[in-house]
């Protein structure tokens, strides 16, 4: 049970700046997801919090204690690793009880906790097995159980589901969410999978090139991306962008159409809209169909709008042919604007 504060943390590897002055506060019992592409610094940040990596500058606080000078075992954390790191020479029981025994906990209490967490993770029948006799999904459960058995203040997870196959990942995701909410532990979860991030997080911190670009609730990150990077990283397919020129009085011209936008004196803005937020209509953006991809529940249609690629998710009942011309009306209140140079959102 602890709040985590990261103050001005930076990390350089030689000449490479992996993290640029990160400031982040994670509330007690919050489920924070660090989301970003590989190389964005998310794992480095997690490892700095864990104590497996030291920050070049900055402070890490867990609860009321500054911990950046402490070894991992004195930080009140537990961790789930990407490759599980379930010790092959120990049985499932010994693996789950590893941290407890290191703390010299009485054997009866070790047994009680191991059995409780094993039951929680549905692996109570595997306690005598070795990891070589387990499937990937079962190893994952052991790794999570080992972390939960510590009853830590903070649980850190480094892409814990990335090595599971798609179906199992879905199942484990739902289970993790339930188990962690139950445990009332503060959680930091690193992933590059935006769906995972959206479904698990109380709050998502989107990372890019060693910066936190946006830190907000999943729906806020999705609806109101703070920067063009977030808009194009989150959502599949991502947001559409079209150049807009000022028509005066907060009105902007996009592909020959006028839209009400921010009142700024910028020479141009980027108009942005999510693919599912447009509908075919009598008025709107003039679009030519380039490609139609039926996806079952809906159609993914790629258009050309004023020479720019533009994707829309449409009802699968519609019959649409490549070359067809139509107009796409953006849903009210869903249009977003970004500054083309700073790439920041403008409102």
């Amino acid at each position: 049970m602890a709040q985590i504060q990261i103050k001005n943390v930076a990390k350089t590897f030689g000449a490479y700046q992996a993290l640029h002055s990160i400031d982040l506060t994670i509330a007690d019992q919050e489920f924070m997801v660090l989301l970003g592409a590989s190389g964005c610094g998310k794992t480095t940040l997690l490892r700095i919090i864990a104590g497996l990596e030291s920050a070049t500058t900055g402070e890490v606080w867990i609860g009321e204690r500054r911990v950046d000078h402490l070894p991992p075992r004195d930080r009140g954390i537990a961790m789930v690793f990407q490759n599980y790191a379930v010790f092959p020479h120990l049985t499932v029981f010994e693996n789950i009880g590893f941290g407890l025994r290191m703390q010299k906990m009485p054997e009866a209490e070790v047994k009680r906790r191991v059995e409780r967490t094993a039951t929680l993770m549905h692996i109570e029948q595997l306690l005598k097995r070795y990891s070589g006799e387990l499937s990937g999904g079962q190893r994952q459960r052991v790794a999570v159980a080992r972390a939960l058995a510590m009853e830590p203040d903070v649980i850190l997870m480094d892409e814990p589901l990335s090595n599971l196959d798609a179906l199992l990942r879905l199942e484990m995701r739902a289970e993790l969410k339930g188990v962690l909410a139950e445990s009332k532990t503060t959680a930091i979860y690193v992933t590059h999978d935006q769906v995972e991030a959206m479904s698990l997080a109380d709050r998502i911190s989107v990372m890019h090139q060693g910066h936190i670009v946006q830190s907000a609730s999943p729906i806020e990150v999705y609806r109101n991306p703070a920067a063009r990077f977030v808009a194009s990283f989150i959502g599949n397919p991502p947001m559409n962008f079209l150049p807009a020129t000022p028509a005066g009085g907060g009105t902007w011209t996009v592909a020959g159409e006028h839209f009400q936008g921010p009142k700024t004196d910028a020479a141009g803005l980027d108009f942005a809209i999510r693919p599912e937020d447009v509908t075919p209509s009598e008025t709107g953006l003039p679009a030519t169909v380039r490609l139609v991809e039926p996806l079952g529940a809906h159609l993914l249609v790629t258009f050309a709008v004023d020479g720019h690629p533009f994707r829309a998710v449409l009802d699968s009942e519609r019959v649409i042919q490549p070359g067809e011309r139509m107009r796409l009306a953006p849903q009210k209140g869903r249009i977003r604007w970004f500054h083309p140079e700073t790439t920041q959102a403008v409102s």
């Binding site: 497996l52 075992r73 954390i77 537990a78 690793f81």
Partner: peptide, 9 residues
């Protein structure tokens, strides 16, 4: 080793 370190060894 990292897991062992985190879990208190």
């Amino acid at each position: 080793y990292e897991a062992a370190e985190v879990f208190g060894a």
